[in-house]
Structures are given as C-alpha cells and as structure tokens.
Amino acid sequence: MTRNQMKAKVLEVLGEIAPEVDLQAIEPDTDFREQMDIDSMDYLNFVIKLDEEFKANIPERAYTRFVSLNACVDQLESILSQRPRG
C-alpha cells in the first residue's frame, strides 16, 4: 500500500468517527484535536478502527501517537513494516 493510499484510508476512518468534518481541509501535520471536535472516546474508537482496517495489531505504547494525518501514516508504516510477511 502506498503512502497516498494509506492517507486515503486513514481519512476514511476519520470520516466515520467525525462525519461532520471536511476531510479535504485536514492539514496533514496539525494535531487532529486542533482541527476538529474529538474527545478521548472518539480518539480511542479512531485507533481501534485503524487497528482493524490495517490489521496492524497496534502496540499499546504507540497508542498516543496517532495525532495527525502524517503521524498516523508514519506509525502505521513503521508497525506494518516490522510485521513478518506471509
């Protein structure tokens, strides 16, 4: 999966959590919480959905790092690349 494909998928998940958000206007390096109304429960649901969509098995220590679009893609790339293929 390319970075752009990953970005598109992350945005899709974000759209499910916060349907009112204009996904086109998301600034990739700015914290989601500064750009939209998401609380700790939304954030948890967001990370759970990313985990499911990317079948990533996100480790607990990475939980707090999915704060912006680019951070999400960086984290997922890093987690997925460490996973044994097969």
């Binding site: 700790s40 429960m41 948890l44 990370v47 759970i48 985990d51 996100i58 607990e60 939980y63």
Partner: peptide
C-alpha cells in the same frame, strides 16, 4: 492498559 489489546483499553473516565 499495557496488558490489554487496544480495543480493550480503559479510559481514565
């Protein structure tokens, strides 16, 4: 929480 999967995480609330 360290011992839990993300989906079973407990929020402080």
């Amino acid at each position: 929480n360290t011992g839990r999967a993300i989906k079973d995480r407990i929020l402080y609330n």
